[in-house]
Amino acid sequence: MKKKALTLTEVIIALSVGLAIMVPTSYMFANSNKQLEKSSNLIFAAGLARTIISSMMSNHTIFPQVGNNTFISCCDDSSDNVYFRYLFNLKENCGNLKKGLLKIGKATSPKFYHRIAKYDFRYGITLAQIDESVKSVAVYITWKEFGVNKNYETHAFIVAR
């Protein structure tokens, strides 16, 4: 029986078949990771918006309006962002009066900071006066994921005390 080696055509076809299997499988894994990140970001944004709204509702105070489509970065440590920093305390400080608020930063809360910085989470607040005591507040959360701008908004009525 005469033994025959593989021809170039056969080799090319075999490689093509191999690539045809590998490429979609790789894409499938990458895509499922992307989809999961997207849903995770949406849940994260909803949590942030709920935190801002809850804080305003419980204190009966409204944070200053951020107008003209200006959104403040959640991990901006400048004095402009003072209201966002007041909202959270990611470390235990119970009973330690001197410690007070622990700011969101790379050192104090690396995972939280990393997520906010990676997707550039920002917040904006607009309000409309219903009457003297009731105000309609809208909280917007924006972020960028995989080159696309995303946003989440929620509304609440705040009664001034």
Partner: peptide, 27 residues
């Protein structure tokens, strides 16, 4: 981490970390 910042004691912030996931929420 549970945070209570309100003297009326009617709002709780919740912060959780699990693996690569983090979530901030409030009630």
């Amino acid at each position: 981490v549970f945070t209570n910042k309100n003297l009326l004691n009617n709002c709780v912030n919740i912060y959780m970390e699990c693996g690569p996931s983090v979530l901030m929420d409030a009630v």
